[in-house]
Design a protein around this nucleic acid. Structure first.
Lengths: 158, 158
DNA sequence: AAAGATTGACTAGTCAATCTTC
DNA sequence: GAAGATTGACTAGTCAATCTTT
């Protein structure tokens, strides 16, 4: 209706769609994964990053950077996961201030068990409702936004 | 590398992009809006929905359904907003179990003040990094996912 | 007894302060 | 004294129990 508000309309709609989709899909997928495997999504992410890392080990700080959590949150989650024997911790021998979290064989087993469940949930509850082309556009466009924001904020807070 | 995992790859990438973009953009935008206007994003959403509603009023339950928050969270937020004189509350005269939250003139003023700030933040920190075409695809594809999930879960939990 | 809202107890998460090692 | 990690106090949010009205 308004002739002027030309620039932003699609951008606002895209933003609102991201917020609503996130709010709708994340709880469904995370409940499903936890119900079927016993792993909370945050635990799954930690295992995934550790498995991908050199020797299955990562310092707490690096782990926090890869996962979407703060350092203090990582400390607590890793402690719980260590109680559950999915990871263990050891001082970094090169710099004893640092702590290395390492995935255990039990952790690897749990990760292998959970992965197909998670992928299936993502597929059914999210990806199946988009065309292949839409999936590609969503992936590339939103990744670009994220990387610009990450590099931008590094510059901003000089 | 794996020849078989054909089906899901773009879908998984799209999912990861949504998670990462949400995690990066929401805090930046919400901090900026709050710093410049004093309104938390949840308050802004409440004001927006009330303004859009008939007579600027809505029952707590309906408000909770439109905003992305649970009923109990809405109760608390509306209470804080009532203390700040941005909304007021009254019993629904037709059904005195219900409570109607209504935007005040002060609330309308704050909403008018905050809207351009919010739109500008969305534009700079999110939409500006996508083409118009990408914005449209993101909006339509993710909205479709959300609406399928909403209607689907209503059916599932019969 | 069932619907609407609020309250209480709990979980997840953040930020600032602390402790250890460099 | 600064970096790495953990701990304590706090905020935001959920779920179950309660209270009121229908």
């Amino acid at each position: 209706m308004k002739a002027e508000s030309s620039e932003g309309d699609q951008g606002i709609a895209a933003w609102a769609a991201v917020l609503r989709c996130h709010a709708a899909a994340v709880p469904l997928i995370s409940e499903e994964v936890q119900a079927k495997t016993g792993l909370p999504l945050s635990w799954y992410d930690v295992l995934l990053e550790l498995r991908a890392a050199e020797n299955g080990r990562l310092r707490m700080q690096d782990l926090g950077a890869r996962v979407v959590l703060s350092r203090s949150r990582v400390s607590r989650i890793v402690e719980e996961m260590a109680d559950a024997r999915l990871v263990d911790r050891q001082q970094d021998p090169d710099d004893r201030r640092g702590v290395l979290a390492r995935i255990t064989s039990r952790g690897e087993r749990q990760l292998r068990k959970a992965t197909p469940v998670y992928l299936d949930a993502i597929d059914r509850l999210f990806a199946a409702h988009m065309t292949r082309r839409e999936q590609t556009v969503v992936a590339t466009a939103l990744s670009r936004v994220t990387s610009r924001l990450d590099s931008g904020s590094a510059t901003e807070r000089h």
